[in-house]
Design a protein around this nucleic acid. Structure first.
Lengths: 362, 362
DNA sequence: CTGAAAGCGCTTACAG
DNA sequence: CTGAAAGCGCTTACAG
């Protein structure tokens, strides 16, 4: 930089001059419109690069039919969930030249339709990303559909094809965690259910029970307790499960917060984790490191889901047309809260080594 | 609404026609410029109200020198801190017709200057809000100052008058929490320090020690341990404090995450909280409810601080000119993890009632 | 396949 | 104290 004068930002006109084309051609290239010869496109791209051109979002929004503004609506089901979702979405937005408006909202589910309508009235949005609980609120869906704005649901409970969606295979992930516990010797495994009505709750339980059935294990009702994805509900659930005469050697809580509740009860009962009781969770959000040893859990691809939702809304047909579905990876995070059960009352330990990390790609 | 056709949004021209003034006058009123007669102003305001007019942000940004875009830079010092700060800032932004860009960033402190410069280069911002650790990074401050964009620091460590700032009285809050422990009978109180270098760490410790001195209590070095605001560091600190021959009857951890670490160690040592050991924290973020009974702590006005920062940047001189300082309220949240010590080895219980909540306004 | 014209909804100087 | 003109940086039809 030679001058210290406030640089005038480079505009489409500068790019056009440098590339030796009309500014309209530049606009076409920027917007990925068809009907531009390769030759011209190259020239434009080179000029964009050398000038460091970035289109002015305000001008595009004002002139065009797009606002380059996306909204994310939802509330934390687990501590840190929305933060992660948002981090992924925000990064993808910046990449694509979009801005993200965030509506963390209260958990009082009844307010979502009102909030959505207000947002729709005051902001011109190019797309909406829906997470729990808004994702399952029919009034919210209807309001958005009436507005005609494309939207993507994160892990919806019902009507999968009603809109584009992003999810991961909660059932297989839960099944695989169950298989892991089985593989290290557990035959008596308890389970803590999630928030009633959330798709995740149903799917995770189905994964757990399905795996146990396939493996020939026992599903004991007194070892399955209800929770609400909160620490406190994990406490209550653990008290129920560990209060029974016969207790399991492992408990699979269907999220991290509840797993921490289980561990807290175990500790209070003088059960050392994992020596006396293995405890595993699901999510791998910050609370997973709120215990020592750290929690063995399933890493849910939350950031990636946020990014994928943005991609659907900003590329190709931008969420218009046939719904798109994206299924993302998860990962079993083997850490410190699960180990072989105290008495090997099941299979003798095999020579089979336990991988440090079990990965699954799809 | 009579028609189902897509409503054309109401513009400044519509307001002008309805109010019977020129659109320029409307613009003046909207922007709070001087030199508009009360009479005209009323007419305009009435028209704005009845039409539900909302100025088009893109048009304002394009035509004017403002972008109506603010950025918030920082990383969680405690789980949920940035979420709360952001929630407060986002709400205030929406109120004021601004948008908020969030840069949660990694905690790897070295990346902040680069990130800031990139943001400055690609976005035209009207203001920047700095939280830890960016708030104490001199390279970040220099880069922003060079750009001329106004900024507000949240709880800065040094050079208070270098910029506008928002804070709360960490020292008095910590002192008051100490006084509370004293008031219910504790005379042997341990303390866990926060992240080295954060202003909050120093101030909270100063508050603790100052209060104890004023009350004539003993500050025992072996009961003061270092932490880093993380759960894990709380564990280590508690092991040091509770491992000593004589242990305190209460431990004041200078944030919630560390308080949880302390509680976890206490439980492992078969110390019931609060029966055998009282534990209190500071922040009142979501982890405060990750224990049962819930944590007695200081409610830091984090959301309010986010909102206050936005106000400084969007009203009056919009952060330009002499730095502004805002000092916000805190609140002592008396919950379940602190109770009188097991043996009243100090003052006899007085008839003095303990208020459910101690408030302090300033 | 490429370009010249009009306009998006405001604000910024500049007149009066 | 109030208004008419020009322009912000793009996209949208519309020509060729």
């Amino acid at each position: 930089m030679k001058s210290r004068a406030p640089r005038r930002p480079v505009t489409i006109l500068d790019v056009a001059k440098t590339a030796g084309v009309s500014f309209k051609t530049v606009s076409r290239v920027i917007n990925g419109e068809p009907n531009v010869r390769q030759h011209m496109q190259d020239k434009v791209l080179r000029a964009v690069e050398s000038l460091g051109y970035r289109p002015n979002v305000s001008a595009r929004a004002l002139a065009g039919s797009r606002s380059f503004m996306l909204a994310l609506l939802g509330t934390d089901p687990s501590v840190g969930y929305m933060s992660a979702l948002q981090a992924g979405a925000a990064a993808a937005c910046r990449e694509a030249g979009y801005h993200l408006i965030i509506e963390h909202g209260s958990s009082s589910t009844g307010r979502w339709p009102k909030l959505t309508k207000e947002l729709l009235a005051t902001q011109r949005l190019d797309g909406i990303i829906l997470a729990v609980p808004a994702v399952d609120d029919d009034d919210v869906l209807v309001a958005i559909e009436r507005s005609g704005i494309p939207y993507v649901r994160i892990a919806p409970s019902r009507n999968p094809d009603r809109s584009s969606r992003v999810e991961f295979d909660e059932e297989r992930a839960a099944a695989q965690m169950t298989e892991y516990l089985w593989s290290i010797g557990h035959r008596h495994i308890g389970f803590v259910r999630g928030f009633p009505g959330h798709a995740a709750s149903r799917l995770r339980q189905a994964g757990f029970e399905g795996a146990l059935k396939r493996l020939g294990g026992e599903i004991r009702r007194s070892w399955i307790a209800s929770g609400r994805f909160s620490f406190r509900s994990g406490v209550t659930a653990a008290e129920a499960i560990l209060g029974s005469h016969e207790r399991p050697t492992a408990i699979f809580a269907s999220n991290d917060d509840m797993a921490l509740g289980v561990i807290s009860v175990a500790t209070r009962l003088n059960l050392s984790v994992p020596r006396d009781l293995s405890v595993v969770g699901m999510d791998d959000l910050p609370p997973a490191t709120f215990v020592w040893p750290e929690l063995t859990t399933v890493r849910q691809p939350i950031r990636e889901m946020g990014a994928a939702a943005v991609e659907i809304l900003t590329t190709g047909h931008r969420g218009i047309g046939a719904p798109v579905a994206r299924m993302l990876d998860y990962e079993i995070m083997i850490r410190g809260t699960a180990s072989p059960p105290p008495q090997q009352n099941a299979l003798p330990a095999t020579g089979q080594s336990i991988p440090r990390r079990v990965r699954r790609r799809q």
